[in-house]
Amino acid sequence: MGFEKFGRFGYVSQTKINPLLSYLEKGQIAATKCKKCGRTYFPPRADCLDCRHSAIEWVVLDGKSNLITFTNVFFAPPVFQPETPYLLGLAELTNGLRVFAPISPAVDKEQLKPGLELSLKVAKGSGDNLYYWLE
């Protein structure tokens, strides 16, 4: 239990990758790495796709990323509607893995374009919700 704290509004409460929340609380964003083959996963996975091992370790990411694409959402699910319009983006991290995340409203949306360098940082939601966004 507890993972519903992830995101602006979480849907899933039970998962093996709960430790992500502890990293977010410390201001860090972490990926999982297979202890056997070394493959790294973000978003984190509890189970390695390649060797089917489930012994993982956590590695902290530097957050450097390049924007791949984005949108500005005007029409949203009811729980998110009060926050509209808001930006969502897809970015590639330095390790080649990708992240889907909100884009901070502090980013000038006129400057947004594929290839723009952004940084993935921890963000605080309402209540004790935690997530990450691109800024």
Binding site: F6, G7, R8, F9, G10, Y11, V12, T15, P43, T69, F70, T71, V73, F75, A76, P77, P78, V79, F80, Q81, E83, Y86, L88, L90, F100, A101, P102, Y131
Partner: peptide
Amino acid sequence: QELMGRAGDVMWESPFGTTMPAYYAMY
């Protein structure tokens, strides 16, 4: 609208307020 918000990955993408049009808009 609530259903539409769960059209994507509910663990890693829906918690940010995704919608069907948002995904295609990104393409």
